[in-house]
Design a protein around this nucleic acid. Structure first.
Lengths: 197, 197
DNA sequence: GCGATGACAGATTTCAATATCTGTCATTCA
DNA sequence: TGAATGACAGATATTGAAATCTGTCATCGC
């Protein structure tokens, strides 16, 4: 509502867009709203983002990037690779679950954005799979994991896919079930048994 | 449209409801439509099903039941348990994928019904998990699978969860990707490695 | 000169009036 | 007598006119 004297940057627009999405949800958030928050005309927003879709895509990217950053430390702990893998998967599940439980509406908004930007999501998944692959590679070097039958990336992808139920927002509704924790642990130990030497 | 002289049974109503859902989709299918197909007044439909929701639930149940029946033969082949497990999982994936690919609109309808009837879906999943558990039990007896670390049912559940991406209709959109087959094979061999003696 | 503006056309959404549907039940008919 | 009917009240969906939004661009002012 208040006009600031700061220069208008892509960064500031993204922040405003996030705020508007949070407040009004994905269906009602408009470019005009974003401009109003920034105290500029909506034409100015279009100087930085070609379309509304591009703006929302950029927000999605930012949002997903945060998960990558939050998980990075778990890739490079001093622990043995098998423990690191469990730690990484647990951190991912905890992260997603905390978000979903803490603010279900925001999660719903997020899911809509994800549905709109599958290309961004694909790239994001590739990053996550890379992090798993790095742990598997270390595990192989340490002798904790057996030599993979197939290439590292597709094994990493298999680990990602096998645990999909516990990080894919499409399943967020199941995460509050009383046995979600047990189900997660069971799948993780299944995966560990498959990988361990 | 044509009035038949046959007596009105729950079975005939369910068939008509399926037809109406197929033709108009979940949003536009009405009880009046169902009655029209049967050539009766909608009041007569309410003699057999208390509400529209109950009617749709019954259709969902019937629909899911067909999967259970189609998979039953795969539980009891003469094959060793590990091959049977792969066979069962492959059959489930193929079944779902054929449905999704063959008639995407019908699949979308089905997904809406599933969303409306989570209790029915939960019971259905339990049946599928039971089928897996039976294969695991045989495998343990045959010495093909290692003694389970945890109880059979929760291991079976873990197998079901780990392969979720390849049977949960929520992921139907991914099944036509060129690498879906490979991803499936990778997860199945991961699961097999975890279970084998 | 360069970022910002706001009027504009066409696309999309909202809103309220209208129509249809759900679920009930007193009545009919075989 | 017991299945089937259809009129009905309240809930839900449809529709089309009015309002708002998206994306462009000629113009402004620092």
């Amino acid at each position: 509502m208040a006009a600031t004297t700061e220069t208008l940057t892509a960064e500031r627009i993204l922040e405003a867009t996030e705020e508007v999405l949070r407040r009004y949800g994905p269906a009602k958030a408009t470019v005009v709203d974003v401009a109003r928050v920034l105290g500029v005309s909506h034409g100015s927003v279009y100087r930085h983002f070609r379309t509304k879709a591009a703006l929302r895509e950029a927000v999605t990217e930012r949002w997903l990037e945060r998960t990558i950053v939050a998980l990075r430390p778990h890739v490079e702990t001093g622990e043995p690779a098998d423990e690191r893998l469990t730690g990484w998967l647990t951190a991912l599940f905890a992260l997603k679950r905390r978000k979903a439980g803490g603010d279900p509406e925001l999660m719903a908004t997020f899911q809509v954005l994800i549905g709109e930007n599958s290309a961004v999501v694909d790239r994001h998944e590739e990053h996550l799979v890379e992090q798993i692959a790095r742990i598997l590679e270390d595990g192989h070097r340490e002798g904790v994991f057996t030599a993979p039958e197939r290439d590292l990336t597709s094994t990493a992808r298999a680990v990602f896919d096998a645990t999909d139920r516990f990080h894919n927002p499409a399943h967020a509704a199941d995460w509050s079930a009383p046995d979600a924790e047990d189900a997660f642990t069971a799948v993780v130990s299944l995966v560990q048994r498959a990988l361990r030497a």
